[in-house]
Design a protein around this nucleic acid. Structure first.
Length: 263
DNA sequence: AAATGACTCAACCGCGATTCG
DNA sequence: TCGAATCGCGGTTGAGTCATT
């Protein structure tokens, strides 16, 4: 349907005049309601093309140029955690677009990965590819007014009984859709760093958990965003000596940095 | 200098999710 | 509740550029 509608609209590279029209339109009407943008701006472009051009190129907060080492470090870690969820990853790397990060990964990083894996001829089977996927929490997951998780206690009890303290278990989501096991996997992933975070994070207002950093939110994407916000304090970014390998990744308990790079 | 291959990145496409009437 | 419209995402493509022969 959208394809039919796009017949007759201009495609391909954007001209400076088109950029100017789009920029002016966004300045006047704001971001969003993309279906109205072609009409408002006078552009002979589909709304998808307009949106993409704005998000990936015209947005004023976009940073151009090569990724810094810190950005690459962060990208590797976020990709390990989130998989190919580029929009989520981009949300954690200021100024970089999902498209840029995706392009970077698909060219530089995939190439490096191939070069490292090739000599070993690592066999990758379908079942060995693990990709975390944020999903909605079940309605069974109930939080009280303090944000304390209630309905998943049974799960935690059973898993702690069988626990072998094996970190790998924390990194293995179930393949089934929407199961309690999956919910438990996300809970475990987040819980893994909770204790350390409570030590590391100083809330501006000193309220700690009551702010709902971990327990008060039901949306996994929101939890992950909060996690990334607080797990990597901005003041550490500003420190020239700050080093992910030594200072953050290991103490968050998400595995060995070198192993991740070698993967 | 020309041909060819490799690489980069902007843009397109299809589809699932969400919103709206 | 349902279907249409819209949004937003990830995978993919292809034009332009650079490096090599």
């Amino acid at each position: 349907m959208e394809r039919a509608k796009s017949l007759g609209v201009r495609k391909g590279a954007w001209s400076k005049e088109e950029d100017a029209l789009l920029r002016k339109c966004v300045q006047q009407f704001g971001v969003g309601r993309w279906h109205l943008v072609p009409l408002r701006s006078g552009l002979n472009r589909c709304r998808k093309s307009c949106r993409l051009r704005w998000l990936n190129y015209l947005r004023p907060d976009i940073r151009r140029g090569n990724l810094t080492r810190d950005e690459i470090d962060l990208l590797i870690r976020l990709h390990k955690l989130l998989g190919n969820r580029w929009s989520l990853i981009a949300g954690r790397i200021p100024g970089r677009t999902a498209n840029d990060l995706k392009n970077f990964w698909n060219t530089r990083m995939e190439k490096k990965s191939r070069e490292k894996v090739q000599p070993i001829q690592k066999a990758i089977t379908k079942t060995s590819i693990l990709r975390p996927r944020p999903r909605n929490f079940s309605k069974l997951m109930v939080h009280d007014h303090h944000g304390t998780r209630l309905a998943t206690d049974d799960f935690h009890q059973s898993t702690s009984d069988n626990s072998t303290n094996d970190n790998d278990n924390k990194l293995l989501p179930s393949s089934s859709q929407g199961s309690d096991e999956d919910i438990g996997w996300w809970s475990n992933l987040l819980d893994a760093s909770e204790d350390q975070l409570e030590k590391d994070i100083t809330f501006a207002d000193g309220k700690g958990e009551e702010e709902g950093l971990w327990m008060g939110q039901k949306n996994p994407a929101g939890l992950l965003n909060d996690w990334a916000d607080h797990a990597i304090p901005a003041n550490e970014f500003a420190d020239d000596d700050f080093n992910f390998e030594d200072d953050v990744w290991e103490r968050l308990g998400f595995g060995n940095y070198d192993a991740i790079l070698q993967y």
